[in-house]
Design a protein around this nucleic acid. Structure first.
Length: 590
RNA sequence: GCGCUUGUAGCUCAGCAGGAUAGAGCGACCGCCUCCUAAGCGGUAGGUCAUCGGUUCGAUUCCGAUCAAGCGCACCA
């Protein structure tokens, strides 16, 4: 099988390490349990059995006693009660039997100090770990089509890929962001035809993408009544492929002005690429693929076309060459896959491409396997759900697009209004509005599981209240604000080396536990290729922090002031880092 | 017809290798700015976890079937 399976194979080992954050907490519980358990259980077994209660009143870790019931011939409740009596309580705040569970309440004071010291000492590096050993990971992402506007669909690929790149870097992989531009294909024949008939240089210069799109849409409208347009378009594309100077000149120009327009959006999103090698780049690299396939006798003729039979993978045949001899999408992707392996010698190769192309990537991997490329399993499709509008699939040809730039503009304008209303004296209003508006759009796209489809709703995308990017940004800004005010009072957060003593209230502890989870969250996000894990985490931490400072006055002159500031500082560090990993800015004031 | 994905509160979604009364946000209703930015905090109301089976001491979670939705299913990418 292909698809996501190979990423699960390593999940066991991965998760064992992934729990390293909480693992330290578990160790104590495990060793205490081992001393009193009437039957032998390994540390691994016990660690796996421990769970985190959903309710704070039930402690920090719980040991369910069901599995002991059979071998001990006792009720789980009795076992829990007995264990509670025998266990060495001195290492914990409290160990309590509740029904069939043995609930452990950790030493909040001591662990809290440890957590804060770790964060303060490591700063932005908190959560880093070496899972990748510097291995290269090309990420195929964004990939807009020349002469077409970037839509919300491209946004998904762009921001998911971008966040994955940050996450991979955090765990010591070396991502290579590749913008596989849609810069080749028969549509260029159409575009050139349309431009020659209805276009002008001045128009295109003034508003490249929109004008080129308009020509393209008009082509498809007129084409219904004038099928001869198709012949012209085909002719132009042939000239382009043959290297006809006029065709090449137009193609280069279209590509250039399109890319310039894309760059403006990428700058707003703060996304940079390591490569813009698109489809055209592989034009001269497909012959080799066909040769290899022929040499290995994988190519078969079927209905006039050249195919690779994939029936043993339960897949449709891969169509390598059309009846007219032209190559196809998968041929190009095979060339790209091979090129990337040779160029980057990757340990994984990712494709952040919509869910609807799942089959294509299964075929791609299957053909690579047939070719004997043992790295085929390092190729992962990272699919994401479809964005619809009013329940309909978006379609460039039908003119049904959601323009990304428009969405960003709307979001920034709303942010602008909010600032005028809520914080009119703010400096750099325009810059902050840009960070908040754009941040809201990015965060909205990343907060839910990749594969969820969603129907586009502008009001929802630019919402700033509740579970949104601005909510997290706001929480971070509040933390920064407190730290600034502390400076004015000549108070500083406790240093990582100082004593930190903080009253372990429920609000405090819930923040501390969140802080402690961060490294594990990163592991999970990487393992699942799922930025939403980080987004959800950022929301939880922000919520915990908001609850904390709503009920605790930080800037109170007492002996815990520096410790409370240490907590605030730690939260600021981790929130900022979580937002960074999502590609969202964290303004100090808003 | 076959394959993939999804089905949890009015809406949008969490629920991490099965476990204790199923959680958020939005919307609705009610409170909180002489108090570190109310983009916030607190509270109330709201759920046969699509349906039916199976595995298990225990299933929203795993397996199977059914139903529903979305997306694919060779000469577009």
């Amino acid at each position: 099988m292909t698809g996501g399976y190979d990423c699960f194979n390593r999940s066991k080992e991965f998760m064992n390490k992934a729990r390293s954050g909480m693992m330290d907490f578990k160790k104590q519980v495990v060793s205490s349990l081992q001393q009193v358990l009437p039957i032998e259980l390994t540390a691994e077994q016990l660690t796996a059995l421990l769970e985190i209660p959903k309710n704070d009143q039930m402690g920090d870790l719980a040991f369910p006693t069901f599995i002991l019931a059979k071998s001990l011939h006792q009720s789980p409740v009795k076992i829990a009660t007995d264990l509670a009596e025998k266990i060495d309580q001195s290492k914990f705040e409290k160990v309590q039997a509740v029904g069939p569970y043995l609930n452990f309440f950790l030493n909040k004071q001591q662990l809290g100090e440890q957590i804060l010291k770790t964060v303060l000492q490591q700063q932005a590096a908190y959560g880093e770990q070496d899972l990748g050993h510097g291995g290269n990971v090309p990420i195929d992402m964004s990939s807009p089509n020349i002469a077409k506007p970037m839509s919300m669909g491209h946004l998904r690929s762009t921001v998911i890929g971008n966040s994955l790149a940050y996450l991979l870097t955090k765990v010591n992989y070396h991502p290579i962001k590749i913008n596989h531009l849609g810069d080749w294909g028969t549509q260029f024949g159409k575009l050139i035809t349309a431009y020659q008939k209805w276009g002008s240089e001045a128009e295109v210069k003034a508003d490249p993408i929109n004008k080129l799109l308009a020509y393209y849409v008009r082509f498809h409208q007129e084409d219904v009544d004038h099928p001869e347009l198709d012949d012209e378009a085909r002719a132009w594309f042939r000239r382009l492929e043959a290297g006809d100077p006029e065709a090449i000149k137009l193609w280069k120009w279209f590509r250039e002005v399109s890319l310039q327009t894309f760059m403006k959006v990428y700058q707003r999103l703060h996304v940079e690429f390591d490569s813009y090698n698109g489809e055209a780049f592989y034009n001269d690299k497909m012959a080799e693929i066909v040769e290899i396939l022929e040499k290995k006798q994988l190519l078969k003729e079927s209905q006039g076309a050249q195919i690779v039979d994939l029936s043993k993978y339960d897949l449709n045949p891969a169509l390598i060459k059309k009846t007219d001899g032209a190559t196809l999408y998968i041929t190009r992707d095979l060339a790209a896959a091979l090129y990337r392996k040779r160029t980057y010698n990757f340990v994984q190769s990712l494709y952040v491409v919509g869910n609807e192309q799942t089959n294509h990537f299964k075929q791609l991997k299957a053909v690579l396997k047939e070719m004997g490329e043992d790295w085929a399993d390092q190729v992962h499709h990272i699919p994401f759900g479809l964005i619809t509008q009013g329940g309909h699939k978006l379609s460039t040809r039908a003119g049904r697009v959601i323009l990304l730039e428009k969405v960003l503009d709307d979001a920034v304008e709303l942010a602008q209004q909010q600032i005028e209303q809520k914080n009119p004296s703010l400096k750099n209003k325009a810059a902050v509005a840009e960070e908040v508006g754009v941040g809201a759009v990015i965060f909205h796209d990343l907060k839910n599981e990749r594969l969820n489809n969603f129907d586009f709703n502008l009001d929802e995308v630019v919402r700033f209240e509740g579970e949104t990017g601005p909510y997290v940004q706001y929480s971070h800004a509040r933390a920064q604000s407190i730290l600034r005010k502390a400076q004015a009072l000549d108070a500083k957060p406790a240093a990582a080396t100082a004593n930190i003593a903080i009253a372990p209230t429920a609000d405090t502890w819930s923040v501390l536990k969140q802080l402690n989870d961060f490294p594990m969250i990163i592991q999970r996000a990487v393992k699942e290729y799922e930025p939403s894990v980080v987004a959800k985490y950022a929301l939880h931490l922000a919520k915990a922090f908001n609850q904390y400072y709503a009920h605790t006055r930080v800037l109170e002159q007492d002996d815990q002031l520096t410790s409370r500031l240490a907590l605030v500082k730690s939260v600021a560090i981790v929130l900022q880092e979580a937002l960074r990993l999502l590609g969202v800015a964290a303004p100090d004031e808003m």
